[in-house]
Design a protein around this nucleic acid. Structure first.
Lengths: 111, 111
DNA sequence: TCCCATGCCTCGATTATCTACACATCTTTA
DNA sequence: TAAAGATGTGTAGATAATCGAGGCATGGGA
């Protein structure tokens, strides 16, 4: 059960933005969804998630409103902004480029 | 020209160990080789490389000796130890697992 | 002579993440 | 009824890898 640290720094924001492409969600649901979608490989710590959400809000990539959740409790729902979508696209492209580059190095034939 | 930070933290050690699978090399050559092998996408900063090399040496994953380089100058050649090989295998497996998980999340179908 | 490539290294700052908490409500279980 | 667990948001302090910028030294070419 690897933590999104280890080598995934900076990737958390991308994961969060990507999850919000499916529509507005509150923090707890975002964390759960990432874990599920990744086949239980990635788990997002609350101490990383909320600061990341606040960063994204400060930079205008997401907006947030208080609304009752499915269970009737008050929860903070985050939505992607156009700026957030653009940011996601950039980070996604960056990820593809860099992870492909790492693969080239580590999977390449010896000698 | 992405920096191996951005999302590659912790990956540097793996890249270095992988490069040493091709035989002993000095720091400068390791950096150059990673850059070449990655198709000029990854570039290793000296301020990251040497601390990483020293960490790996302290933990016994590599050994180092001074020898003249191809150009005749004294250089510090690093070699993989058995412990380093084991570490590389673990990190390589970890990388595959986690990068595949990230791909699952970000490439998955919407909704 | 001056510059550039080679080659090693350190220092301070940045920054995201982690662990571990605190707080609140609602539901389930003993 | 009381305890426990799930839901849900958040902060505080510490950690640690990386970065940028610099220093130092040698050798070769212009």
């Amino acid at each position: 059960m690897g933590k999104p640290s280890d080598l995934l720094q900076g990737t958390l924001e991308m994961l969060v933005l990507r999850t919000l492409e499916n529509g507005p969600q509150h923090g707890w649901a975002i964390a759960r969804r990432i874990q599920q979608t990744s086949g239980d490989v990635l788990q997002v710590q609350q101490g990383s998630l909320y600061p990341a959400l606040h960063r994204l809000e400060r930079m205008g990539a997401v907006t947030a409103t208080w609304r009752p959740s499915e269970t009737g409790r008050q929860a903070r729902f985050y939505s992607l902004t156009p700026a957030g979508e653009r940011r996601l696209e950039k980070e996604r492209a960056q990820w593809r480029r860099l992870s492909a580059a790492v693969d080239l190095v580590i999977e390449g034939a010896k000698a």
